[in-house]
Amino acid sequence: MGEINHECTCHGNPLVPQVVKVIKITQETPDVKTFRMQTPDGKKPFAPLPGQLGMISVVGVGEGMFSITAQGEDWIESSIKKVGMLTEAFHELAEGQEIAIRGPYGNHFPVEALKGKDLIFIGGGIGLAPVRSLIRYCMEHREDYGHIDIVYGSRSPEDLCFKEDLFQNWPKEKDTRVEITVDRGNETWEGNVGFVPAYVEELAFSPENKKVILCGPPIMIKFTSEALVRMGFAKEDVITTLEMRMKCGIGKCGRCNIGSKYVCLDGPVFNLAELDELPDEK
């Protein structure tokens, strides 16, 4: 995948974080919040490429690796789902509080190799967060990329992340189509109901000149990948991201290995052909 960018901004010691202020918190779903971060003197902490990661800490509680889902002139954002002790601490933060971050870590989506291609973004649940960094990048460099399809699914209409992007911002973009599905609808939901893999097959994409960027829960990635291969997509053209438990973020502490690769350093972005080369330990 994309060449590894090791321009960490940690003042020479990659394991020491810099302090950032949470300047905005958006409640995306009942259990997902997006945190906008900025240095105390109003600057962007670092400029990640799409798909890259940040090790973010609630100081005194712990740190965890999260994708940087968006960035602006002077801020970066991560979306965090409440699943455990650390993420609960994130959800208790208030705007104006300080936290710490180190990074950017990992490789990134191959923005150069995707140029001139039609792109299909497929996200499931919180898996839209890493994909969103690339969608935003492509929107900012819209002339470099062909037609864009965004297929997104979540458990229920309430669980759809980034609703403003999904329903307002992205459908307005040139040559862009947004297709949303939910596992279970409700009384007001008029969109599609069904799992992402089936919905992708229903949408019957042709593989010609297309690249797919696919992120979501492991089971959704598995079945969607199989569907895409059945539809004729080459494994090299389906790009996804992996997750493992991480501590150091710089390929030293050991735990995020799959075979000889470290997900924090050599990943998180891999295509399906590359995943086939790794031991089946996902």
Partner: peptide, 13 residues
């Protein structure tokens, strides 16, 4: 590193 928490956070390698 050592850290101090409060209104602002200090981190000292």
């Amino acid at each position: 590193y050592n850290y101090k928490m409060g209104d602002s956070i200090e981190i000292k390698e």
